[in-house]
């Protein structure tokens, strides 16, 4: 492999890492908590609410009432 080709691969890796690092900074603030919250609600629905034959919204409503 030539030096140019190796350099191109290295540059591609570094640019990707840089863009991913910047994206991660933004995503961890906004998107990741949303995804985490979604999975928490989904798991709660599957473990508890769906067994009572309720939809997620109804279940959350009755949970809050209780």
């Amino acid at each position: 492999m030539t030096d140019t080709k190796k350099s191109k691969l290295l540059m591609l890796l570094m640019t990707t890492l840089t863009v991913l690092t910047i994206s991660y900074n933004v995503l961890q603030k906004y998107v990741m908590p949303d995804i985490e919250g979604y999975w928490q609600r989904k798991l709660y629905y599957e473990r508890v609410i769906s067994k009572k034959g309720l939809t997620l919204q109804k279940g959350m409503y009755w949970k809050e009432k209780k």
């Binding site: 190796k6 290295l10 540059m11 570094m14 991660y24």
Partner: peptide, 27 residues
């Protein structure tokens, strides 16, 4: 730092073995 940030550090330093001051030059 998180995994990606540390990867950037390590690859930058290793890259300097082959290309002078890689991080300073390009990023």
């Amino acid at each position: 730092g998180h995994f990606l940030a540390w990867s950037l550090v390590i690859v930058s330093l290793l890259a300097s073995l082959r290309i002078e001051r890689f991080w300073c030059r390009y990023l």
